[in-house]
């Protein structure tokens, strides 16, 4: 797994708890805000005691159709969800969230897509190079998890190359 993005271009409204938080958690003994390395652990503790820190369930339908379910934190980008929870999606997030590739391309259902924050020109520019581009495509590094997204299902596109490949294999087996 790539290490945590250092120069990531995340949307301004994304408040990730995987980055160091300047505000210490009110819970006694909670170490949130004490350091990047401890932040993830601390978040887990906080969640356990504090229902106001929201956990959101997100499902990813992988290339092979397998459903991967993750518990995301509000404010994380979907790329961070995949990285932090070690979801096994081949080649996801090659540029580590810097808007320089399109490997974290995800496809949304229409209704969910409409509720997302507006898309920037720069994100559209990279999406234009994505495999299997659809009208409801977004880059995972640019979409922040919100409470209202609980139960969201997104699809990892099946590469065009894969379809070609299936045809090729089909031809050979005949």
């Amino acid at each position: 797994r790539p290490h945590s993005p250092s120069n990531s271009k995340r949307p301004a409204n994304c408040l990730s708890l995987s980055e160091e938080s300047p505000i210490p958690c009110p819970h006694a003994g909670c170490m949130r805000g004490t350091g990047v390395a401890m932040a993830q652990l601390a978040v887990t503790f906080c969640n356990f005691f504090d229902s106001s820190v929201d956990r959101v369930t997100v499902h990813f339908i992988n290339k092979d159709g397998e459903k991967l379910t993750a518990t995301a934190k509000e404010g994380e980008s979907l790329l961070e969800v995949v990285v932090n929870q070690n979801l096994d999606i081949d080649g996801f997030g090659a540029c580590e969230g810097t808007l320089a590739c399109s490997t974290c391309h995800l496809i949304f259902e229409k209704d969910a897509f409409r509720k997302l924050d507006p898309i920037t020109d720069e994100e559209l520019d990279m999406l234009d190079l994505a495999y299997g581009l659809t009208d409801t495509s977004r880059l995972g590094c640019q979409v922040c998890v919100k409470k209202a997204m609980d139960g969201l299902t997104v699809r990892v596109p099946t590469e065009v190359a894969d379809i070609r490949r299936e045809l090729e294999v089909g031809k050979q087996s005949k």
Binding site: A94, C95, E96
Partner: peptide, 14 residues
Amino acid sequence: DHPEVKNVINTFTQ
């Protein structure tokens, strides 16, 4: 001036 693209080196190094 495209250092972001070079982030792929991190994965290659792994």
